[in-house]
């Protein structure tokens, strides 16, 4: 049956799962890469280099980092919505390719034709990058169907928001996933808001980990700001799915620091709430503090990591600024495949 973890108390849990030095440093690196990349993207948006919608992942870095650490890179499939930059960076897609897609250039991951919300990589088994809220849940279930059909042992990880969790196709997918015991892990990134609507105002029940109950899908609520807890829960969920027991739901309690997209009046929440999360729960600061107190690295060594990441991000931004726009002939390519 479904079970729950008491996520909000995770910080004070005594037997919380620990990371070794390598894991701490790897998590720190990946989360910082996402943070710095997204800050840069926000800046470039402000400069008019990025158009349309641009949904930043700042604050939620621990979720995709912990889950991806628990997955088999290049084998397990991942799919998400439009808040997708972090997923790609942590999965190992080229930062310059992501940034150049944000600016709509030829060197972007979709050749400039997709934009912020639509990037993909078959090599990394990343299936987007989806603009329609909830669509990725059925699609991710389909990736799991293919995995079972082919018997390739891979797991599909489908991320979606608290807002998306109310779409009908989520429950249609849950039913099929359990009916056929498909190897899929549903990761609900509950950042408390869907645009300006808080979870309390949109949802009859707000414990999303229990949304699979009537389909007999186990679920856990996880402190999504602590990458160790995310990783620990994800290992359990992925193992469950890979061993043929069917779907698993992880509700990650997380928070986005920035607005929904770049233009967001943010009147629906208080400054205090945002500040509190940033100061007391920041996923990167948590790892950093542990690294220093455990003496996994010195301040200087962490600075060095930061410097390297800044260089990567700067290089990506430069590339994305100077790379040419796609050739005009690209307007007419990739519509259908001529057999």
């Amino acid at each position: 049956m479904a079970r729950r973890a008491v996520a909000t108390k995770a910080k004070t849990q005594t037997n919380s799962p620990q990371f070794n030095k390598e894991q701490e440093l790897s998590a720190y690196h990946d989360m910082l890469l996402v943070r710095r990349f997204e800050e840069k993207a926000g800046q470039m948006y402000g400069m008019g280099l990025i158009g349309g919608f641009c949904h930043l992942y700042i604050g939620q870095e621990a979720v995709v980092t912990g889950v991806t650490m628990a997955s088999k890179k290049g084998e397990d499939a991942q799919i998400t919505g439009y808040r997708d930059h972090g997923h790609m960076l942590v999965m190992g897609l080229e930062p310059r390719g992501v940034m150049a897609e944000l600016t709509g250039r030829a060197g972007g991951l979709s050749g400039g034709k997709g934009g912020s919300m639509h990037m993909f990589s078959l090599e990394h088994r990343f299936y987007g990058g989806n603009g329609i809220v909830g669509a990725q849940v059925s699609l991710g279930t389909g990736l799991a169907f293919a995995s079972k059909y082919k018997g390739d042992g891979s797991v599909s990880i489908a991320y979606f928001g608290d807002g998306a969790a109310n779409q009908g196709q989520v429950y249609e997918s849950f039913n099929m996933a359990k009916l056929w015991n498909l190897p899929v892990v549903y990761v609900i990134e509950n950042n408390k808001y869907a645009m300006g609507t808080s979870v309390e105002r949109s949802s009859a029940t707000t414990d999303f980990s229990q949304r699979g109950q009537s389909f007999d899908i186990p679920g856990e609520q996880v402190d999504g700001m602590d990458v160790r807890l995310v990783h620990d829960a994800a290992e359990r969920a992925i193992e469950h799915a890979r061993s043929g027991k069917g779907p698993y739901i992880l509700e990650m309690l997380t928070y986005r620091y920035r607005g929904h997209s770049m233009s967001d009046p943010a009147k629906y929440r208080s400054k205090d709430e945002v500040t509190k999360y940033r100061q007391e729960r920041d996923p990167i600061e948590q790892v950093k503090a542990r690294i220093l107190s455990e003496k996994h690295a010195t301040e200087d060594e962490l600075k060095e990591i930061e410097t390297k990441i800044r260089a990567i991000v700067t290089e990506a931004a430069d590339f994305a600024t100077n790379d040419p726009e796609p050739d005009a002939s690209e307007l007419w390519t990739d519509i259908t495949i001529s057999a």
Partner: peptide, 16 residues
């Protein structure tokens, strides 16, 4: 509009 899905790149969008 051109007979294509809407591209993101500024130059292609204009062409579409």
């Amino acid at each position: 509009g051109k007979d294509v899905p809407m591209p993101y790149a500024a130059n292609l969008e204009k062409l579409a």
